[in-house]
Amino acid sequence: MRTAELKQELIDYSKKIGIDKIGFTTADVFGELRERLRRQQELNYQSGFEKGSIEERTEPVRLLPEAQSIISIAIAYPSRMKDAPRSTKEERRGIFARASWGIDYHVVMKERLEKLAAFIMEKIPDAKNKVMVDTGELSDRAVAERAGIGFSGKNTSIITPEFGSFVYLGELITNIPFIPDDPIEDSCGECTKCMDACPTGALIQGGQLNAQRCIAFLTQTKDFLPDEFRTKIGNRVYGCDTCQQVCPRNKGIDFHTTPEFEPEHDIAKPRLRPMLKMSNREFKETFGHISGSWRGKKPLQRNALIGLGHYKDKTAVKEMITVMQDDPRPVIRGTAAWSLGKIGTDEAFEAIQAALETEQDEQVLFEMRKGLDFKEGQEMMKK
């Protein structure tokens, strides 16, 4: 079968199985990406979540020795939530980034790509294929850029002409030599809105991200969150959408092409207080099907505590005191103490002071003292 015919059949088939956009590129080395990754490594701008060596991430033949082409796919996800629940004084809510709305996109994207691979195998039984979504070695964005899915914006997201940057990406490496598609021209121009709006200055320059300062990364860490970022995180439980929300290319963009990605109100915007005492089983039953659960409940509970402090939620004080006193995890006890200090009620300060007498962990003690420092700040303001 001629590859040109198979390519068109794949394009037609992709539309039938819920793929919004498909592109083809060669399996050549990603030379420019290789140099960029080395530079990121030298500057310590990486998140640490990256898989594989730089060579594996930029040389497709290391992943599939017979590699000739890469098929890139994109599926749009919603940017707006219909009838979204509001956060109230009695019931404060957090927010998951849009990329964690609905069913875990890794599952959905992999299923679509495996259907493409099966379609290829029906036509060419001895074909070699390898499917990857996000957690694979290849850079989904680099592949998508070269395959003409979109251009890489200054916010480091792939921006498509049709769906903006609200798209999930995945790829299939194959030994079939498809004719490659042309890349799309970069259209950011002089615009720097994403860089200017980034809450932590993580976008160092157009297209370069310091992941160590990115809120999307920081919400996934498991240790104490550095002080400078606690006031920036707000009520974010997982991820950050700021650089996408301000992008002019995303104005008016809101696609609901895939039912699996529709947000569940109480999951995408969860009540914060119930998150504090969730058992592992409750956490898995509630959040286990979304991508934002992959790091477990600890980071999300820590973020929920910071969110309650951000809101100065006095209704949560008693529950937070219990967490500070009883939770076996130092990060959670310490963050609860800091957030209680930020809420700043007499009951909160008294509880922190009392907990100082029995706490043994040095980091938690440090956080408790920082919590009490808020009291001094209050008193100075009164003067």
Rank of each mutant, 00 (worst) to 15 (best):
M1H: 11
M1G: 12
R2K: 15
A4F: 12
A4R: 13
E5M: 12
L6C: 07
Q8M: 11
S14K: 06
G18A: 09
I19R: 00
F24I: 07
F24G: 11
T25W: 02
T26F: 05
A27S: 14
D28F: 10
L33C: 05
R34I: 00
R36H: 15
E42Q: 15
S47I: 00
F49Y: 12
R57V: 05
T58I: 10
T58Y: 04
P60E: 03
L63Q: 08
P65S: 13
E66H: 05
A67K: 01
P78I: 02
S79D: 06
R80K: 15
T88I: 04
K89E: 15
E91G: 02
R92T: 12
A99R: 07
G102W: 04
I103S: 04
H106G: 08
V107A: 04
V107P: 04
V108E: 10
L113K: 01
A118H: 02
A127C: 03
K128M: 08
K128F: 06
D134T: 10
G136C: 10
A144S: 15
E145I: 05
I149W: 00
G150T: 06
S152D: 05
S152A: 11
K154A: 08
N155P: 03
I158Q: 05
T160I: 08
T160A: 07
P161S: 08
P161G: 09
E162N: 09
F166S: 01
Y168T: 04
I176H: 09
I179W: 02
P183Y: 06
P183K: 14
K193H: 13
C198K: 07
L203W: 09
G206K: 04
G206C: 07
C214R: 02
I215L: 15
N235Y: 15
V237A: 10
D241R: 01
R249D: 11
D254L: 03
H256Q: 11
T257D: 00
T258A: 07
P263G: 05
L276I: 06
R281H: 12
R281S: 14
E285I: 03
F287C: 04
S293K: 04
G296T: 06
K297W: 00
A304L: 09
I306E: 02
H310F: 14
M324H: 06
Q325S: 11
T335L: 02
W338Q: 01
W338S: 00
W338A: 02
K342N: 11
I343S: 03
G344C: 04
G344R: 05
D346Y: 07
A348K: 06
F349S: 09
A354T: 11
L356E: 12
E359S: 01
Q360E: 15
D361V: 10
Q363N: 15
L365P: 01
F366D: 14
F374R: 04
K383F: 12
